[in-house]
Structure formats: C-alpha cells, structure tokens
Nucleic acid binder design. Structure first.
Lengths: 121, 121
DNA sequence: TCAAATGTACGATGTCTGTCGTAATTGCAA
DNA sequence: TTGCAATTACGACAGACATCGTACATTTGA
C-alpha cells in the first residue's frame, strides 16, 4: 500500500483534479517537474496495478481516480515520521515545522483558532 | 546534501550515542531493525564519503560523529514530507498533525506561545 | 474514408538503494 | 611474537525506481 515518491506526486495532482486523464495530470505535473508524457503514463499504469488508482475509458483516453484518500495518507505518513524521527512526539514535529517554514499571518491565525477550539473542548 | 531513509535511521541512533563506533550504532539499530553488521558498516562508510559523518580511529575501530545536527535533519525530513504529501504547505501538515494526535494543554500552550512570538516579529 | 493527431501498451535501460559475502587489516592476549 | 577475534575495506548483487523510445490503437475532422 505504499507509494513511491513519484507516485505521490501524481496522487497529489490527482486529488486536486480527479477524475482526470493522463494528459491532464501530466500537464499539471510538468509545471513543477520535468518529465515525458509516457513517463507519467507508465507511472499511472503501474499505480493501477498496485491498486492506488482506478480508471474508466472515456473516448480514446482513460479517466483516473485515486483509490486512497488524501487525509488518510497524510495521517499515516505523519504517524510514521513522528515515530521514526521525533521520538513519538507530534508536537515536536509541529514546532519544527513551524520553525523551519515561512507562514503567513493568516495561516498562523488559522492555527491559533484551531488551538482555541481544541482547548475549549 | 540529502540522506536516504536508511541513513537517517543511522543518524538518529548516532545523535543519541555519539561519538560511537559502528558496533555501537549497529547494536542499537537492530533493536528496531534487522540487518547485518557489514550493512551498517557500509552505510556509515558511504555516509562518510557523503560528508554526513566524520570519524577518528580509536584502537582498531573508528569512532563516528554526525556532521549535521538533529534539527537540520528533522527539517529535511519535514521538507520532504511536505513536498511529497502536503502540496508544499507546511501549514497543512501542522493542521493535520494537530488534528490526528493527542496533545496536552501544556503542549498546546507552547505552540500558542510560539505563535505569539512569531506574529509580534 | 483515411490520414493526422492523440492516446495507450510494452519493453528496455540507467541509476539508486540496501544488502551482504569475502578478503584484508588491526589490536591484543597468551 | 604470534594466533585469534574483531573490525574495516572492497566489490558485487538484486530489486526498486524513474525514465523514455517505439509500436500499436483509437478518435476525429477534412
């Protein structure tokens, strides 16, 4: 059930666009990354075999849909990362993430808002 | 200067023990993971070439020290995770981490405090 | 209708990663 | 000093990954 780096990039695109054709995914993908069309195609074919995505024919093309949902995947990877590299402390990861990345005021406000809701409850 | 998954596991052990010999690192490593001694040795030799660690001879063994600190590496891991799973948004990761894990009030306070410092500045 | 355009299928390849076997080396104890 | 146990050095290997070239299939519009 684990996806490779390249597969995750595709999943990311797919989660935003789905359902989507290889062409659509590829065009979006090369905004960030350089690769040939057949590379993306092959990648998605492999993902189909792995059960990461499904597809249906539509005209001459195939239309793909992700079979794992984004939040589930994100939750799993966070758990794995926290266990392996942050001594099991998710908060340690959060602090590190806040420290190492630029965040806009509005983003920080969102987090603060979230924290308030947490505490009240 | 990117480390692989296996290299990060070794670094993790090294940070706790350093300075440490291959034997010491390996013994600690196999508590969690199964691998041969020469595998760990080779890994650390490669890491030496990559400049991830340094070493000095001590008796017949070598004593290794990490050349990147833990925070740096954790930052690297977060960056990679964010890129692969969170569309490059560290905030998205933070929210997910906060949502999926229990956090004590004091931990939440720490984060709130941190946020305040951030905003002021 | 049929040829160009578009898409899929399939196989080949180079690289990276992790793994380990074996040989060479070293320090130490007897 | 010498043999043994522990360590390092070297190289090879399989499998995973990412990439792409080329052949085949399908749609469509002139």
């Amino acid at each position: 059930m684990k996806a490779t780096e390249a597969e995750l990039e595709i999943l990311n695109v797919l989660w935003a666009l789905e359902p989507a054709t290889v062409r659509e995914v590829h065009d979006k993908l090369i905004e960030k990354k350089d690769a040939g069309y057949t590379t993306t195609l092959k990648q998605m074919q492999v993902m189909l075999e792995k059960g990461l995505v499904s597809r249906v024919a539509s005209g001459k093309a195939h239309v793909y849909t992700a079979l794992i949902n984004q939040q589930q995947a994100q939750g799993q990877i966070i758990q794995r990362t926290v266990d392996a590299f942050f001594n099991g402390s998710a908060m340690q990861l959060v602090m590190q993430a806040l420290g190492n990345h630029k965040a806009s005021d509005s983003e920080l406000d969102m987090i603060r808002e979230y924290l308030d809701k947490r505490t009240k409850k």
